[in-house]
Simulated scan of single mutants.
Amino acid sequence: MPPVKKTKSTSALLWDLLTFDRLVTGPVIHLIYWAGLGVVALFAFSVVGAAVGLALKEPGIGSLLLAFPVLIAGLLVAGAMVLLWRAFCEFYVAIFRISEDLRALRQTSDADHASILSRPPPEA
């Protein structure tokens, strides 16, 4: 039998959001990640446009010899920017998951302490 999922009411969900019991940073980080990739894609398109502009600026082999390294270097920089952006976003996701794990550990510890305190003392 599959586990039963608990559904929360809207007021409980709102209360979790207002008291920071539920963090919304994970989904927000994903949106920021895709927006950042869009900015990097714009940079890559501008590099391609600059290389084509350099190639068409003057007729001859000299402009092509200048445009090719600009294109390659720009695309390499764009690739590095994608990797750095991914690492940056993964770092923030990891930090917030650590926070959630610490919260769960704290709740477990508090429950253990409460159960110890509620036990009657042993009789001698």
Rank of each mutant, 00 (worst) to 15 (best):
L75I: 05
E123R: 09
A50V: 07
G79H: 07
A12W: 00
F88L: 14
V52Q: 12
L17E: 01
A35G: 14
T7V: 06
A73W: 06
E100K: 13
A41F: 11
T19F: 01
V70D: 00
L117N: 15
T7K: 04
G74I: 00
D112N: 15
G49F: 09
T25G: 01
L102R: 09
M1L: 12
V24D: 03
D16F: 00
F88S: 13
F91D: 10
G38D: 06
R97M: 10
R106C: 13
I98Q: 13
I95Q: 15
I95P: 02
A80R: 04
G53I: 06
H30C: 08
A44M: 06
L18G: 03
S63C: 04
D110C: 13
I61R: 08
E90R: 14
A73V: 12
S109C: 12
S115D: 15
P27A: 08
R97W: 08
F45W: 07
H113S: 12
A87E: 13
I98R: 15
L14Q: 02
K57G: 10
K6R: 07
F43M: 07
L31N: 07
Y92S: 05
L83F: 08
L56I: 08
I116Q: 15
D101N: 08
L65P: 00
K5G: 01
V47G: 03
P122M: 10
L64R: 03
S11V: 07
V70Y: 04
L105G: 08
R22G: 00
A35F: 15
M81G: 07
R119D: 09
A87N: 09
F88D: 08
L76V: 12
T10R: 04
V28K: 11
L117I: 12
P59C: 06
S115I: 14
D110T: 10
V70M: 07
I98E: 11
I95C: 15
L65Y: 08
P3W: 04
W15L: 02
G62A: 15
L105H: 06
P2Q: 12
P27V: 07
